[in-house]
Design a protein around this nucleic acid. Sequence first.
DNA 1: CATATAGTCAAGTCATGACTTCACTATCTA
DNA 2: TAGATAGTGAAGTCATGACTTGACTATATG
Lengths: 108, 108
Amino acid sequence: MNLHFEPARADAIFFALGDATRRNILSRLMRGPASITELADHAAITKTAVGQHMALLQDCALAKSEKRGRVRTCRFDPAGLRTLQGWIDYHREEWTGRLGRLGEILDD
Amino acid sequence: MNLHFEPARADAIFFALGDATRRNILSRLMRGPASITELADHAAITKTAVGQHMALLQDCALAKSEKRGRVRTCRFDPAGLRTLQGWIDYHREEWTGRLGRLGEILDD
DNA sequence: CATATAGTCAAGTCATGACTTCACTATCTA
DNA sequence: TAGATAGTGAAGTCATGACTTGACTATATG
């Protein structure tokens, strides 16, 4: 089991996922790449707002994007979820280390 | 693999974990039960604030508590993390279903 | 070239939520 | 029983962050 994760990044990830609109955007990206305009339509907010959310999502590696011509293509980035999984595993370890129960329960 | 989770509860969990103070409290509780006063000292906030955080954490099954006499004993509740794990697994499935890559990457 | 399209930047609005204070109740203890 | 301790409820303060507008740049297309 890989228990490595960067706590600072985990913080940012929890903050990022704490917002429903960003989870909405992320869900959309998991189904495939999308432009800013597409994401704006999907989330019913302005392109500016999407840009702001994307900046945040990219900072914690939950998404990435590249611009070709005038259109920016946004994609889901699995690296962030890997960090999130690391956080869970780490704390599961902490919990099981003390009480030996979370592992069983999470694995049930 | 168990892909069941309640989306509404997942929302609440992400919101709850999006706050650093609540993650702090939760970390403390994973090391063992604590009173409101202990948690307040640990997080350097008032007991009232802790009570508010606890209400939130309990709503999404990340913590539980019971009052005996005048002291309320707070405990970590693994049910919430189980839901969080369910969310990850579900979206991993969604992603792998379309592109067949997140599974490998998360499992690396 | 003229117009439409895609996105970005700076600035500001507004709601939410984290936290406090103060007054209060309940329980414990000297 | 008097005083201390543990927590709760109501109400308000304050900062943050989600979002918008409007002006702007860059790219595409008739």
